[in-house]
Computed example of a mutant assay.
Amino acid sequence: MNLSPIPPLDPGDLEGGFVRMMHRFHLAGTLTGDPEADAYLRQDANAVLLGLLYDQRVRAEFAFTGPIRLRNRLGHLDLSRIAAMPLETLQRLFAEKPAVHRFTNRMAALTQAVAHSLCRHYNGQAAQLWADGAPLPEVQARVARLPGFGADKLRKLPYVLHYFGHRDFSQTLGVLNG
């Protein structure tokens, strides 16, 4: 039974935690297993990008719920404010239980570096990386210029954007029948 209005994408050779999340979405209507986190990720493009950044050496569901934990601790997910705060403060907030990410210091530093880059080039708004309708290779090239985004994350990017409702890449990736 498909509970979601979002068409299922063919994951091709993509594997791992996000593929598991895609399957859960079509069976249970939630990607992360936390409807509140899913709603926040659909609402906030910065959260989606940070969730993808955090999808490294932790369960994908934990990675993608990291941005809501960070927002709850900060009271915001304003990248200009994150870029301006002392790194030590951000690291301390990342380490509070439950941690935002397993690698608190590294991911706090990467979060701040991404915030700096987005503030410098995209007015602090991750949506500006893809909202102009640029083709997938251009969107991936833009994201690749950010700290912490390598080939594996770039392969997941169109699926993440599609499933969280930020950009429809179904024509590029192929929709599954049934």
Rank of each mutant, 00 (worst) to 15 (best):
H76Q: 03
P137L: 08
N72A: 10
P67I: 01
T89S: 13
W130F: 15
R106I: 06
A63F: 02
E61V: 10
H101N: 09
Y122M: 06
H76Y: 09
F94Y: 15
D152T: 13
A99W: 04
A131G: 05
I68S: 15
E96N: 02
A134P: 00
G133K: 13
Y159W: 11
N105W: 02
C119F: 09
F164K: 09
A84D: 13
M107F: 14
C119Y: 07
T65N: 03
G51L: 07
L50K: 12
N72W: 01
L146I: 10
T89A: 11
H116A: 11
N105Y: 03
Y54A: 05
Q91D: 03
Y54R: 00
L129F: 12
L77V: 06
R92M: 10
A84K: 02
C119I: 12
P158N: 10
F103K: 01
A99Y: 04
A109E: 15
L157S: 06
V160Q: 13
G124I: 04
G150Y: 05
A83C: 07
G148V: 03
L93Y: 10
P67V: 01
L87A: 12
L110V: 05
I82V: 15
E138T: 15
A84N: 07
E138S: 08
R102D: 03
Y159R: 03
L110S: 07
F94D: 10
G148W: 00
Q125N: 15
W130R: 08
R69I: 10
R59D: 15
A141V: 00
N123V: 00
R73M: 05
G148C: 04
H116S: 10
E96K: 13
G124K: 07
G75W: 06
A95T: 06
L157K: 04
R145Y: 03
V143D: 11
P98M: 11
L136A: 10
V143I: 14
T111Y: 04
L161G: 09
